[in-house]
Amino acid sequence: MDDEVMAALAGILVALRRIAAERPDKACSLAKLSKQVGRPMSALRRQLTMMEEAGLVLVTLDDGGVTGTVELSDAGAGLARDLSG
């Protein structure tokens, strides 16, 4: 993967960590994450699919796959913590 893609994925992990710290009792909606990272939903969904396959996030889709939530897996939370420094 090139540096731009890696930076985008790191940004998603860090944003999810920040959102989870702000609202620990609630999973992050895909719409909220899309706004936080400044990516269109279609691009975000592709990136989350890669991250889910790598075991970094858990994605739950609702309403026929149109909406849903995302949260860090244990591995993703550890990597996000490392990236946040």
Rank of each mutant, 00 (worst) to 15 (best):
A10Q: 12
D82T: 03
I19D: 11
T49P: 14
K35E: 15
L33P: 07
G76A: 01
V70L: 03
V37C: 13
K32L: 07
G38C: 05
L30M: 13
L16E: 00
R39H: 02
L9W: 06
K35R: 15
G64W: 02
D63Y: 02
S73H: 04
R39T: 03
L33C: 04
C28L: 04
L16Y: 03
L33I: 03
I12P: 09
S84W: 06
V14C: 01
G38Y: 02
G78C: 01
V14K: 05
D62I: 07
D62W: 10
D74H: 06
V66I: 14
A8S: 14
L83T: 08
G78R: 06
A31G: 04
A15W: 07
T49M: 13
V59Q: 02
K35L: 15
E22Y: 05
S73P: 02
G11K: 09
S84V: 03
D2W: 07
R46W: 11
A10D: 14
A15V: 06
S29I: 13
K32Q: 01
D82W: 00
A31W: 06
Q36C: 12
A54R: 05
L44Y: 11
P24C: 01
A80C: 03
V66P: 09
V66E: 14
R81W: 00
P24F: 02
G78D: 05
D63P: 03
E71G: 09
G11H: 07
A80G: 02
S29A: 11
Q36K: 13
L13V: 08
E52W: 04
A8Y: 07
A75T: 04
L58Q: 14
L48K: 14
T69D: 01
A10C: 15
I19Y: 05
A54M: 07
R81M: 03
L56Q: 01
S34D: 02
A10Y: 09
M51Y: 08
D62K: 07
E71Y: 08
T60G: 04
L58C: 13
L9P: 07
L44E: 13
G85P: 01
G85Y: 05
E71C: 10
D63M: 03
L58M: 15
A10F: 12
L83C: 07
D62T: 02
A20H: 07
A10V: 14
A21D: 08
L58F: 14
R81S: 03
G85K: 02
S29Y: 05
R23K: 11
A20P: 06
G38N: 11
T49L: 13
P24K: 00
L9Q: 14
V37G: 14
V59A: 06
E71L: 11
L9F: 11
R45M: 12
E52Q: 11
A31M: 05
R23H: 10
A8I: 11
L61T: 06
L79T: 11
S42D: 13
A7S: 12
E71Q: 12
R39C: 00
